[in-house]
Nucleic acid binder design. Structure first.
Lengths: 290, 290
DNA sequence: CATGATGTCTGACTTTAGTCAGATATCATG
DNA sequence: CATGATATCTGACTAAAGTCAGACATCATG
């Protein structure tokens, strides 16, 4: 059974039984799965009852009873929301935090055990990232962030590392015109990170200049997220941000060693123009009027 | 959240919710999940009631009732086992087969939809194969097969393709000493395929000769299964087969462009020897006394 | 062929999950 | 401050899954 559909279904079977095992491990602490899921949702920082209900897809009556049972166990306390006394916020008690930590330890041990099965953990992780990104594709959020934020810095680091691998002469940020963070923050510009769940998987910078145009910089998509047309989404978001800032003309530079980038630009209304800066790395220059 | 454990857990979350969605699609035919799972197990060729119960992890009482409900629907018939009238065998009626086909169509459509999400389906499939092989690692079966079987021929085809990619001069089977299938069948030799679920993911041949030794040929592990120490398992199985055939001396040839193979041989008791054949491709020769 | 083991079935349960219709308190609005 | 909307809770239910003890037929064995 080697056709694509069979391979996907083989994966589904493998994963379904693994998920079953994962569930039963969550049952190991003498609490039904529903209650365990609520406890863990609270532990992971979801405090609003409606938010938890929504996240877990529960009926309000069921949710209420699950919360009550956790309260009876002394793991959770609820109180009215500060701004709106109809809403309730749940938080863990000291015992609840301990219990949550046990679940966390269980999950971590499980994850470590899985990684340990494989002598090439990095390949395994890359495959998992790819699949998780695909599965959560429609939930990839493009968030405007400070270019100095942890998520942005992670993306930039990966971006530089990849340039270093793909440029025959390597890549040294200090030789390139590294944009000032201030230029990629409102009101001069913007920096957008694509987040899949908690993992940053792509970014793009909009860098304001004093020359009547803004530049697109640092477009990067994680290997795990390629093929999802995320580059296009990031570019669209950057252009939207530019319009919002009243910018009418965009420019960018790139390198012919990154053919997929050039192709993306050409297919989305960018026009090749002559060199407009003296950065040593790029050899292709584009412009787009919004 | 970029550490390995967080990445595994992100994958788990993504996959858990996807599996949930998969389950609800199985509910779309107006039958509880338990009954649907039994019906599909039978459709996939599991006929022994005990086997199904074991596969699905069901209590015998529950299993019995689920079978009864499928019988009441006219989808399944049971009869006593030929050799042992205590055991029961279940099979699908004509209506049952139609119903099973509907589930199959649903699963296939789901798989196709998933593949369509991704513009680089081959990368996605490779990642799924890798994870499925890892998850089902302990269920990888080493089966002795005819070297002409479909599974064996698939492995050999992949093996030749990989040699073609990795040898600087390419690889042409007709120039190499392609072993006769008869030499890799009992009683002269053996051919072993590693099966993960329905997917062949590795092979090794034991080729009998008339020179007082047998040769190990065609050791191959699918990219999706590398890192699981499957090469070692295959070699162990081949050596066991050789012992079973009363063979006391093994030889093999390989190429220094395949360093992982040479390392495996050296670390498992093989000793380098001078060239013992005139095949143009190998440049390294090993021997092992059993 | 008696005996204990095995595989399935039935009856009588429990637990968990989920649904739905109100009840109650609070909020936003005019 | 009356009114409709919103968030949560309670009570009363159903469906599905799972558990357990014992009944029954059949098998392997000495």
């Amino acid at each position: 059974m080697l056709d694509p559909v069979s391979r996907v279904r083989r994966f589904n079977r493998a994963v379904t039984s693994a998920v079953g095992a994962l569930d039963t491990s969550f049952l190991g602490r003498g609490r039904p799965l529903g209650a365990a899921r609520v406890l863990n949702a609270i532990g992971h920082g979801r405090s609003d009852v409606a938010e938890i209900r929504d996240y877990l897809g529960l009926d309000s009556g069921l949710m209420s009873r699950l919360l009550r049972s956790l309260e009876d166990e002394g793991l959770v306390e609820t109180e009215a929301h500060q701004d709106d006394a109809r809403r309730r916020v749940a938080k863990l008690t000291r015992t609840g935090k301990r219990e949550f930590a046990s679940y966390e330890a269980l999950s971590n041990a499980q994850a470590e055990g899985f990684l340990a099965q494989h002598s090439q953990a990095e390949a395994l992780l890359a495959a998992m990232d790819l699949i998780a990104s695909t599965l959560t594709r429609e939930r990839i959020a493009l968030d405007e962030m400070d270019p100095r934020s942890e998520q942005a810095r992670h993306c930039l680091g990966e971006y530089y590392a990849e340039l270093g691998r793909r440029f025959s002469q390597g890549f040294d940020v200090s030789l390139s015109r590294d944009p000032d963070a201030k230029d990629m923050r409102r009101p001069r510009g913007s920096f957008i990170v694509a987040m899949s769940d908690t993992l940053p998987i792509g970014c793009v910078g909009l860098k304001g200049t004093d020359h009547g145009y803004a530049e697109i910089k640092r477009l990067w998509v994680a290997p795990a997220a390629r093929g999802l047309r995320l580059g296009r989404r990031l570019m669209d978001a950057a252009e939207d941000a530019a319009r919002g800032l009243g910018i009418a003309l965009l420019r960018l530079d790139t390198n012919s060693a990154l053919p997929e980038a050039g192709q993306l630009y050409r297919s989305t209304g960018w026009r090749e123009i002559p060199r407009f800066n003296d950065d040593p790395y790029p050899d292709l220059f584009f412009e787009k009027r919004l």
